[in-house]
Amino acid sequence: MDAADFVNLLVSALLLAGIYAAMSVGMTIIYGVMKIVNLAHAGFLMLGAYYVLELHERLNIDPLVGSVLAFPVFLLAGMLVHWTLVKRIPVSDQPTLASLLLMFGLWLVLQNIGYLIWGSSDRSILTSRTLSSMHLGPITIPTVRVIVFIPAVCSLGLLEFVLRKTWYGRAVRALMQNRYAGRLAGIPVEKMARLTFGVGIGFAGAAGGLLAQLYSFSPDFGHGFLLRSFVIIVLGGLESFWGAAAGALVLALVETFSILVLPAGYQPAIAFSLLVLALVLLPGGIAGIFAKKHRWA
């Protein structure tokens, strides 16, 4: 491998990391505030993809604009899901099996509604950008990757800004650290949870739209990305956005560079193995979330 190849791989890993980070951030925020492992994330990624596809095909709306338009729609959908389903299960400081299975049931429903509406064949979004590429000296980059990378990173920056500078953001961060103290400090926990769930789903929908411009998809879309999202937030310590960004980078690097040592067929196994390794080998290592609860005096 010469230097140009290496730089090529590095650049594509970085571009991939951006979209991975945007993809997992919705899951991170829901986990952080509500301690819910959102398996339905995959379903909303898929719906986001079809939403952007339909806008593109029917109304001729550019998929990038479509992805941005997905955010408010999915935000409302998320709040509706919270209002109808999620708030009915007991809150807990630890993730519970009930919430996990509830979200899993929702994923099954969404996925199969997808099959009923769109059938099982693979779809993709084709624009003039899809096949073009950019050349920077010896480096070749598919244009669409760059174009998708930019809104992904912008949205992360925007979220970071909201979390740092607004009342909502400070409340979210307070709840992530200590739900009980947050309630004592007068944060309306239920309202915040609903809004947060909406934001998380909003990000999932938008990220689904972005991903749809890079990969073909079917109603089972999101399955592989769901597990990748897990890897990312587990690597990132589950509750921090910077951690998730770092996790996204690690996963993207490992996946991209593994083509040098692993046969292509085994590629998908990387994320899955990394997930198990991260869960088992980093207990409490990064953020200590599944460190055993010590019994204090």
């Binding site: 996990l100 899955f272 207990p283």
Partner: peptide
């Protein structure tokens, strides 16, 4: 089995897919 509840569940998805 070092993992509790939901973490165990997620790890089993990873194992199974791998």
């Amino acid at each position: 089995f070092r993992l509790r509840g939901p973490y165990f569940a997620i790890a089993t998805i990873g194992v199974s897919e791998a």
